[in-house]
């Protein structure tokens, strides 16, 4: 079970300020639909990048969903996050094909370069490093995905270089 993704870390005050009214159209869309819990949470995460505590409260009070049910679902599925993420999400593929083509070297190089552990966000809030099971681009292994761009046939050094280029673009 993926319990390690639930962090007990206190969320800072700055991060707590979210505009909860952004949820209104989403609530309207899924209000009376059967089995709406997962799409609602997916929609919430699309808006905020994670699922803030206030969102749980709002969904609960407006739609009558149980907090415990929502928490149960969020902690069950790998997709959901309870903490804010960086501006860019780096997903390093650790599927079978990538594993035998040394995907660990990519994660290790990125960990060292970004000075974060797997699942963490850099201090400047720029990058979040994640490992995923399979991106389905096995023929290009090892693969990583930054936001929606997939990069294949990588080495640790190349992966770090790609991140550096993103940084350079950001600072311009």
């Amino acid at each position: 079970m993926r319990i390690k993704r639930v962090s007990t870390k206190k969320i800072t005050e700055e991060q707590e300020q979210v505009d909860i009214n952004l949820l209104n159209p989403l609530i309207e869309k899924y209000k009376d639909k059967k089995g709406n819990l997962i799409p609602l949470l997916q929609g919430t995460q699309d808006i905020f990048g994670y699922i803030p505590y206030e969102a749980f409260e709002k969904l609960s009070s407006e739609l009558g969903l149980e907090l415990s049910d929502m928490y149960g679902v969020v902690t069950f599925y790998a997709q959901f996050r309870l903490n804010p993420v960086g501006k860019h999400i780096i997903k390093v593929c650790h599927g079978t094909a990538c594993h035998v083509q040394n995907a660990n070297a990519i994660t290790d190089a990125l960990k060292e370069s970004l000075k974060v552990n797997d699942g963490e966000t850099t201090e400047d809030g720029m990058f979040t490093l994640e490992s995923v099971a399979c991106l389905g681009c096995c023929s290009l292994a090892p693969v990583m995905m930054i936001d929606n761009d997939t990069h294949g046939k990588l080495t640790g050094g190349q992966a770090v270089k790609i991140i550096k280029n993103v940084k350079i673009k950001e600072s311009n």
Binding site: I38, A78, Q79, A133
Partner: peptide, 25 residues
């Protein structure tokens, strides 16, 4: 279309159904 949320076990039929219903798979 129902988008999965990332759980390998949801490939199993009854878990998949639970997931479509909005529950833990």
């Amino acid at each position: 279309i129902k988008e999965g949320a990332g759980a390998f076990v949801c490939g199993e039929e009854t878990a998949l159904i639970a997931s479509v219903e909005g529950e833990r798979g």
